[in-house]
Amino acid sequence: MPILETKELSYVYGQGTPFEKTAVDSVSIAIDEGEFVGVIGHTGSGKSTLVQHLNGLIKPTSGAVLLDGRDIWAEPKKIRSVRFEVGLCFQYPEYQLFAETVYKDIAFGPQNMGLSEDEVNSRVKSAAQFVSLKPELLEKSPFDLSGGEKRRAAIAGVLAMEPKVLILDEPTAGLDPKGRDVILGQIREYQKERGSTVLLVSHSMEDVARVSSKVLVMNESKCAMYGTVDEVFTRSSELAGMGLNIPQVTRIFLGLKARGYDVNTCVYTARQGRDEILRLLSKARGGAAT
């Protein structure tokens, strides 16, 4: 049974006003436990609105969200408990820091869960470790941290709730390439170690290709594609039609293939590209020798 599922999920902004707009249009997806799903789409494609449905921040206009097979809106009073199981980290999360110390800020989520003091303490420590925040930073004011540290502290605030499903909305927006790599690496490590389910919203195809096992493509409020990375990226011309570009490396290999070279086009990182070219070259050399 999928851990998280949406059934014909639709959401309409400002229903009954002249500004009515459908933000999510009958999206049906199923996410299995332990999956790493990349959610991509153009600005305004409805991806942020979609993920806010998954932890019950937005109530769908029609359709349902199932967590472990149960409709999360079956008991509207218990919607808070859903938010502890499906952790959502918003875009630019550093703007939500508020407590006097980093420790207290990370502890906000676990404390809301009503955990014991010891449990909160151990969760804060391990969450801080996951995002490699030095222990001495925990006693500092969050406003004294650097930009990258703030971002990581804010992500730790969601990790500390140890949600079954972790959703990150553009966690790397506005970071330099190094900071981006660090955060993506930490998220992937967290996912591997905990075996939790992760949804990563991004519009960087490179990021998504690097870390995800599945890709969900949103276009004009609809779910345009949902499948494994290979399945989705082979439909590159369709993606281009939606204003999305597949990774540069993949484009090179698709071009090579079109020009008659026998290459594997499921290449998403420079490293994979190097290996594939080396394979091709050695084969060509081997072919010439015989």
Binding site: Q52, N55, L57, R80, R83, F84, G87, L88, C89, F90, P93, Y95, Q96, F108, G109, N112, M113, G157, V158, M161
Partner: peptide, 13 residues
Amino acid sequence: DKIMSAQKARGAD
């Protein structure tokens, strides 16, 4: 609105 959603996502009541 955004901050409220973000804190609600962390279980703020």
